[in-house]
Simulated scan of single mutants.
Amino acid sequence: MRLSQPTTLATFLLTSRFAAAAYTPVDTFTSTNFFSAFKFFTDPDPTNGQVTYLDLPTAATSTLIATAPQASNAIYLSLDSTTPSLPKRPSVRLNSLKTYNKGLFVLDLQHMPTGCGVWPAFWLLGTGATWPINGEIDIVEGVNNQRNNSMTLHTTAGCRIRSEGFTGHLDTADCDVNNATQGKNMGCGIRNPAAGSFGAGFNANGGGVVATEVTSQAISIWFWPRGAVPAELSPSSSSATTPDPSKWGTPVARFAGDCDIDAHFKDMQIVFDTTLCGDWAGQTWTKGECAAKAPTCEAYVKDHPEGLTEAYWLVNSVKVFEQGQGGKKVGRRERRRGL
């Protein structure tokens, strides 16, 4: 192309940059196709939780999963909250059949698991190598009666983030799971200062939307409570198929700095899981208000199923947008957090 004026060249370059950055839909997971797009993980919990993960037929028979419960269009994922005196409670963990390297991942959520002993997470997990060589991105995560969402990256050595470009609170800056100064497996973490970003407060407001953008430059996460979701992320919006993160303002978390994102995050599955106690909820039991309910987390979840009635997900949708080629099917070999 021939450009005669410098201003025309600048305009061309700017237009080209935004054209290249346009997002288009790759996958949409709703109640119509959700369970066919995910594999049920049935190995022992890598985080040592007090759960047994069920396969799809068993989970369905046990009514731990459903689509369109109570006339809604949501996906229902839960754990056992009725059987008394049960050391390990049936639960579900789902890993997407496809993997992704880059993209925009938008979760529309009505309700998340909450309660003492409960440890839910929605995350992206790198596959095909020993954890955490291909990385882990924890998007929605917390334990017990936590009120603020925790967002964390887990990597091998050589990934640190800067404390700028986001509205959240930086807890740890080194993403290396073997950083002994921070604590083993801590990774780099940013906490959402909004009390309604996790747990009971999130659910009381009817949930919200979380968007995660993964590029070669940064991993950014935005959160909007119900009632404040951008119009373009509404299912009825004409621009819902072409979301533009540049319009969303400063993200609540932005992981960028001395970190080669392309090298540390590859072939990632979308994961939902709910575990109990384990390496986080169990180890921090005595530090919060839940400690008054039982001497240990394990004792509480074993003998108090009535305390777990809010430990369920109601997922409206998960949408994936990419700038280039879509995700690929994951192979038979899967990696698990903590192994």
Rank of each mutant, 00 (worst) to 15 (best):
E310H: 10
R254D: 11
E164K: 01
D303L: 00
V92T: 11
P6G: 09
P235A: 11
V318Q: 11
P87H: 09
L124N: 09
H169D: 15
R254A: 13
T130Q: 07
D27A: 10
G135L: 03
M186I: 06
E306A: 09
A157I: 04
D260E: 11
K329M: 14
G49M: 06
F272I: 05
N145R: 01
T30Y: 07
E213N: 02
K266V: 09
N145H: 02
L9P: 00
L79K: 05
K293L: 15
E136S: 01
W123A: 07
S150C: 00
V320M: 09
M1W: 06
F35E: 09
G338I: 02
N134A: 04
T155G: 10
A21Q: 13
V252R: 01
F34Q: 02
N148A: 07
N185A: 08
E298D: 15
R254F: 02
A194Y: 11
S96Q: 12
F223D: 14
I270K: 06
A71R: 03
R147W: 08
R336M: 10
G278F: 07
C297Q: 07
L109N: 10
G288I: 00
G326E: 13
A194D: 15
I65S: 05
V318M: 13
K102A: 11
L124D: 11
I219H: 09
L86E: 12
L107P: 00
K88V: 11
R93E: 15
C188I: 09
E213I: 03
D43T: 11
I161E: 13
N144F: 05
A173C: 07
I190F: 12
I139H: 02
P243L: 11
G208H: 03
A228C: 00
I65V: 15
T130F: 06
V118P: 03
T42W: 09
R254T: 08
L13Q: 06
Q269N: 15
P87K: 06
D303V: 00
P69E: 09
D244R: 01
A68H: 04
T15A: 10
G126R: 01
H169S: 10
M186H: 10
C290G: 08
A211W: 04
R191V: 14
G189K: 11
A218F: 12
L13K: 02
T52E: 10
A294W: 06
W280A: 07
T155C: 06
V26F: 08
I133Y: 06
L153T: 08
L56A: 12
I133H: 07
A21N: 10
T156F: 07
L109I: 14
H169I: 12
Y23F: 15
L233Y: 12
E141C: 03
E232L: 00
S85G: 05
W131A: 04
H169E: 14
R226I: 01
F223R: 07
R332Q: 08
A195M: 03
F272H: 13
T274R: 00
A292D: 14
P120A: 14
V51E: 12
